[in-house]
C-alpha cells in the first residue's frame, strides 16, 4: 500500500470525524472569549444530536432531502435555547460556571433520554433514513493529488465547518462586535466603563456557543452515528473543549486542533487497515487528544493563556 493510498483513507475520514468537533469548538471559543467557561459543550452536543435525529425521523417524509438541513437548523435553535440555562445560572445568578456546566451535561442527557423513552418507548431511536449526500466540490476536486484527498467525496457540513472557522476568526478579530466580546472576557470592568453591556455580550456569546454546539451534535448524529442513544455523544464535547484549549482559544487554532483530533479518532478506527499502524495499540490513539491537551496546557507546546476574566462572574461596581 503506497503512501498516497494511505492518505486517501486517512485524510477524508479525519475531516469526517473533525466536522462536529470544529463546530462545537468554535462555539466554545465564543463562550470562553467572553469570559464564561463552558464545560457544558458536551450537553449542548447531546441536545443537538437528539433534536436533529428526532426531527429527521419525524419529518423525513415531508421535507425529503431538505430534512437534514432543517434538522441542523432545529438543533441550532434548540441548542441556543438550552444554553440559556447555563447563561442564566452563570451570568445572572453568578453560579460557579464549572458547576453550571456540569449541570447542563447532566440535564441534557437526562432530558433527551427521558424524551426518547417517552416518544419511542425504548432507550434508542431508529436509524435515520435521510442523511447528507457526499459531494465533490466543483472545480477543486479536479486538482491533481490534492483534489481527491481534500475536495472529493466529502460531506457539505465538513466544508462549512472549515469555512466557518475563518468566518469566526473574522468576526472575533476584525469586527467591533468581536472586539467587544473579547474585551468582556479580558477585562469586563474596563469594557463596562466604555459602555459595553457585559451581561448582554456574555448572554449572546453563550447562546452562540449553544447554537454551534447544537449544530456540532446534529452533524455528529446525522453523518456519523445516524441514531440517538445514551452513548451517541460520549466525550465529543469534551474533546471539542480540548480542541479549543489546544488551539489556544483561537478559532483557526481550534479548527486545526479539531482536525488533528479528528485524525487521531479516525486512525483509531481505520488504523487496523494501514500497515505501519497495525501494531500500534489503539489506546495510544484514543488518549492522544487528551494527553496532547495536557502537554499544551502545561506549556510544553507553546503557552496557552486563557482569557483573563474566564470563570469570574461580573458584579457591577465591585472591584
Amino acid at each position: 500500500m503506497g503512501v498516497y493510498e494511505i492518505l486517501q483513507i486517512i485524510v477524508p475520514s479525519a475531516i469526517f470525524f473533525a466536522a462536529p468537533l470544529i463546530f462545537t469548538a468554535l462555539g466554545g471559543v465564543f463562550s470562553e472569549r467572553s469570559g464564561v467557561v463552558n464545560i457544558g459543550l458536551e450537553g449542548l452536543m447531546v441536545i443537538g444530536a437528539f433534536t436533529s435525529v428526532v426531527f429527521n425521523l419525524t419529518f423525513a417524509d415531508r421535507f425529503g432531502e431538505f430534512t437534514p438541513w432543517l434538522a441542523l437548523v432545529m438543533a441550532m435553535i434548540v441548542g441556543a435555547v438550552f444554553s440559556l440555562f447555563h447563561a442564566v445560572a452563570s451570568i445572572t445568578f453568578r453560579a460557579d460556571q464549572v458547576v453550571s456546566g456540569v449541570a447542563i451535561n447532566f440535564l441534557a442527557i437526562g432530558l433527551s433520554l427521558f424524551l426518547v423513552k417517552k416518544m419511542y418507548g425504548k432507550g434508542q431511536t431508529d436509524q435515520i433514513q435521510v442523511g447528507f449526500d457526499k459531494i465533490d466540490i466543483f472545480g477543486l476536486s479536479h486538482i491533481p493529488v490534492l483534489g481527491p484527498l481534500f475536495f472529493s467525496n466529502g460531506y457539505i457540513p465538513s466544508y462549512i465547518a472549515i469555512a466557518l472557522a475563518f468566518v469566526v476568526w473574522y468576526i472575533l478579530f476584525k469586527t467591533p462586535f468581536g472586539l467587544r466580546l473579547r474585551a468582556v472576557g479580558e477585562h469586563p470592568m474596563a469594557a463596562d466603563t466604555m459602555g459595553i453591556n457585559v451581561t448582554k455580550m456574555r448572554y449572546i456569546a453563550v447562546m452562540i456557543s449553544g447554537a454551534l454546539g447544537g449544530i456540532g451534535g446534529g452533524v455528529y448524529a446525522t453523518i456519523i452515528s445516524r441514531d440517538f442513544s445514551h452513548a451517541t455523544i460520549s466525550g465529543h464535547g469534551f474533546m471539542a473543549l480540548a480542541a479549543m484549549i489546544f488551539g489556544k482559544w483561537h478559532p483557526l487554532g481550534a479548527m486545526g486542533a479539531a482536525l488533528f483530533f479528528g485524525l487521531a479518532q479516525s486512525l483509531s478506527i481505520v488504523g487496523q487497515t494501514i500497515p505501519f499502524l497495525k501494531n500500534v495499540p489503539t489506546v495510544y490513539l484514543l488518549i492522544a487528544p487528551y494527553v496532547l491537551t495536557i502537554l499544551a496546557l502545561a506549556g510544553f507546546i507553546g503557552r496557552a493563556d486563557a482569557p483573563k476574566a474566564l470563570g469570574t462572574p461580573y458584579v457591577k461596581g465591585k472591584r
Partner: peptide, 22 residues
C-alpha cells in the same frame, strides 16, 4: 415513568445549588 427523570431532578438540584445566589 422513565428512570431518567431522576437524572433530570439531580441536574436541576445542581443548578439550584449552583445558583445559590438566587
Amino acid at each position: 415513568v422513565p428512570t431518567e427523570l431522576v437524572d433530570i431532578v439531580i441536574a436541576l438540584i445542581i443548578f439550584f445549588v449552583a445558583s445559590s445566589y438566587l
